[in-house]
Design a protein around this nucleic acid. Structure first.
Lengths: 314, 314
DNA sequence: GGCTAGCATCGAAACGATTCGATCGAAACG
DNA sequence: CGTTTCGATCGAATCGTTTCGATGCTAGCC
């Protein structure tokens, strides 16, 4: 940059300003600087140096655990997509943080913890020590973090009421692996069906859900509805029920959660639709605000029951 | 860090060495330094400063286009997963690069372009100017980049031969949107069935494929097999064929590409299995080598035909 | 014509580490 | 006991910007 300054006949500071635009520079000067840069093959301020000086890297970490697990659930993508969109627009990039890596040396301006089932993350203490802002999505409300969530309990309760209204009284549920959202969703169900039987817990994964439900249905249980805690699970339950000759919703009603597309299913699920993109945007905005040093309030987003064709009267 | 040095009674350089381990430091000294750091609440070297000095950020960008599109295809995840794993182990993080964002200011040590249909990327020129190493996976072989690919053509040809051996002569194909892999796969098919009819082109997306095939099958075409260029497409074709009362593979054989799991399908697809994890590892290793300044040869990985239950004799 | 504003520019001081080459001791050797 | 060797430690230079406060200059105002 110094060479560019000399060639353009201006000072180093002016050259910097010409690139960053942080203070007014006359058009003539700016053009002279850019021309000099071009002729010297200078590609603009070195990001590393710029980062040090500004105390900011423009990189935001997102901890989602193993990628293939985290993104297998179609609910994850639109959310991360929205995060990425907002951050991109603000000039920030999104860095995927694997499970256990030593991210201590990476230049992170903030970190997002998304749907983390694990109650502890190896990096948490370190990030606290470094004073890196953290935003937790549907996870435990750790001290010092900003918390973005949806109304798990309210949504689950609405779905349960819908089933109750249809006359269902004997209901079983397939839960997620122990994690934060799981608790609220199960609680909402129990607000209406305190006795609901737990079939088992598994990730939002087709095979796992199908296996659990297959075993369960083999016992010819006396239930008229199964409430799942994700749409992927619900889709698996529908397919498995049919495979066993049950009609959905004639013989069995099935409820989901998330409101994602299940194109391989020729039936619209009754489910609790959560505003995935809004959640992502709220998350990204919280991140930006915290990076800017502002105080940020926790957020809880509403959900909506969508009645599809997978539930019906008893 | 200077304060830590003073408190520990050593020089700044020794303190740095105690943290980085780049040169031997006596155990006693290291402990003293770490203790001093702990008592001062010093969380280790500032990554930003470290980055500038070392000329490296530890961040590798991966350009995949829009996330929700890129990761909807289950073939994408295991590959990125493997990339992330290798990079993590080497202390690098993976930064998702959206479509058009200005990543110019981000501190990137290298960039991966994955399966990019677009022939140009807005960031390419800039990265060349900055001299950032680039690795292109299944994309165009731009000058200066390292190229990781699989044997699209050979795989597609093997699948085509398999169908030919089963007696098929009238074959149609569903192609991907124009992009690099598409070309090789279609070429492989035409090595055996030069006249194969193109049903249409769409992304590796269930709905899109189903729509295309639905229209096509409505014309009651005179074909005995449909070759798809991804498993997601193939699964959609199977379901759509069945919906129209066709038996697979009795009335129609269907071939895929990728070798990913399609758990919602009760039938194993005949497909070309590509080594997704190997591809990811090869990519990450190429990235690391190029960051280290080594010359790296292009890579082409083999694929394998897997005969499942979606193809059968005419 | 003198005075104030305000814009463009500049100099210099950070930002917080890493690393090269030199120095200092103590152990190993003959 | 003198010399060599090697590991631990240290000083100082450097990485390439950004930004604060100051300066000069022109334009506008009464």
């Amino acid at each position: 940059m110094a060479d560019v300054a000399v060639l353009a006949g201006v000072s180093l500071s002016t050259t910097s300003l010409a690139f960053s635009g942080n203070k007014p520079v006359s058009d003539a000067t700016r053009e002279r600087v850019l021309a000099a840069a071009a002729s010297l093959g200078y590609a603009g301020p070195n990001p590393l140096a710029s980062n040090l000086r500004r105390g900011r890297s423009g990189v935001v970490g997102i901890a989602v655990g193993r990628l293939s697990t985290a993104f297998r659930d179609p609910a994850a993508l639109p959310m991360v997509d929205a995060v990425s969109e907002v951050l991109d627009a603000a000039g920030f990039g999104l860095l995927l943080m694997g499970d256990d890596a030593a991210h201590a040396r990476l230049p992170l301006d903030a970190v997002i913890y998304d749907i983390c089932g694990r109650e502890t993350w190896t990096s948490y203490d370190d990030l606290v020590a470094r004073d890196v802002p953290m935003v937790v999505v549907e996870g435990p409300a750790w001290p010092g973090t900003t918390f973005i969530d949806i109304d798990h309990r309210g949504g689950a309760r609405a779905l349960a009421r819908h089933l109750h209204d249809l006359g269902h009284r004997r209901v079983a549920t397939l839960t997620l692996e122990p994690s934060h959202p799981q608790r609220g969703r199960e609680a909402g169900l129990r607000d209406v069906f305190p006795q609901a039987e737990v079939i088992g817990a598994c990730a939002s994964d087709h095979d796992a859900a199908q296996a659990l439900v297959s075993d369960y249905l083999a016992t010819e249980p006396d239930v008229t509805a199964i409430v799942c805690q994700s749409d992927v699970q619900a889709a698996a339950v529908v397919l498995e029920a049919r495979r066993r000759g049950l009609d959905v919703p004639g013989d069995l009603s099935v409820g989901g959660f998330d409101g994602v597309a299940t194109p391989w299913l020729d039936l619209e699920l009754t489910t609790v639709v959560q505003p995935l993109a809004d959640k992502g945007r709220a998350t990204a905005e919280a991140v930006l605000a915290r990076i800017a040093g502002e105080r940020v309030d926790d957020v809880e987003l509403p959900v909506a029951l969508r009645v599809g064709a997978s539930t019906g009267p008893v």
